[in-house]
Design a protein around this nucleic acid. Structure first.
Lengths: 149, 149
DNA sequence: GTACTTGCAAATATTTTGCAGTTAC
DNA sequence: GTAACTGCAAAATATTTGCAAGTAC
């Protein structure tokens, strides 16, 4: 656990280690608040701010990922036909991808567990403009900014 | 336009109509704020609250969809290996789907426009518990609660 | 006429920022 | 020893709620 953090040049603190461990142990994709309330006994001084900071650090270091990206504000699409999205991680621009065939076969257990209403396929990365800005600008963009799965 | 709304039993008001039209005309997947600031000239009395209400109404009626679902709070995943998610629209539970092969071929223009870093595949619907609650409870759940693409 | 919608104000929730003190390396 | 992290307070942003007045059907 400690090794994983050091490998990615993430400074190790007791809080970070605890947050990271919880995140990996829990299989239910917790929010900052969930992790915070679980650790508040072990670390009475822990604050939600630290949990936010840590999750951001971990995710920018590729040690975890956000289940729900593009979080800043809700975005709506007037096109309800099936299509995919290309989402720029930097400027949050959304491009449409129409008529891209894809096939997928869900395992049998899904039918008994989960009633699928619809699905979503999205690709994250950089739009052309943000690629240019990233190349011209600082060293930002060399590390994948905030990974998502 | 009006017909589309009436077909879905959505009461037509000038504000609603304008919001719906903008949403369909704009291809850039706007946020509530974006639509609001665009219509504020035409409807000086319009408020952001109405835009929020309307977008919610339209999306629950299947006339538009949220690009970024599961918005209430950010959720993180300690597993960074490629996998898909089953997301319950009601309780926001997230289930993992491992080892589901899928193939997809992006159109050629994408390579020039967008630098893909990673992707996400998610299925939305109801988990078993929420299926039961929906069946037992009121008439909720007959209409797909909040569609997503 | 009635039920639904709008607009206003205020509340809530989520996340970010600034700064002083503390800790990891 | 220095740069990075934590915790506190406060701010910023996004979204929801309660309620009176107005509007669609």
């Amino acid at each position: 656990m400690v090794k994983l953090l050091k490998e990615r040049d993430v400074q190790v603190t007791p809080q970070r280690l605890a947050i990271f461990e919880r995140l990996v142990i829990r299989k239910d994709h917790p929010s900052a608040e969930m992790i915070y309330s679980e650790l508040t006994h072990e670390f009475p001084s822990l604050t939600l701010v630290t949990v936010y900071n840590t999750l951001q650090k971990l995710s920018s270091s590729g040690l975890c990922c956000k289940v729900n990206p593009l979080h800043s504000s809700a975005r709506y699409d007037g096109n309800t036909t099936a299509h995919m999205h290309l989402i720029c991680s930097t400027c949050e621009k959304v491009l449409d991808l129409h008529d891209v065939p894809f096939s997928i076969e869900l395992p049998d257990w899904v039918a008994g567990e989960f009633q699928v209403a619809n699905h979503m396929v999205a690709f994250f990365g950089l739009c052309r403009q943000c690629q240019i800005s990233a190349a011209a600008g600082s060293t930002e963009g060399i590390n994948p900014a905030s990974r998502t799965a």
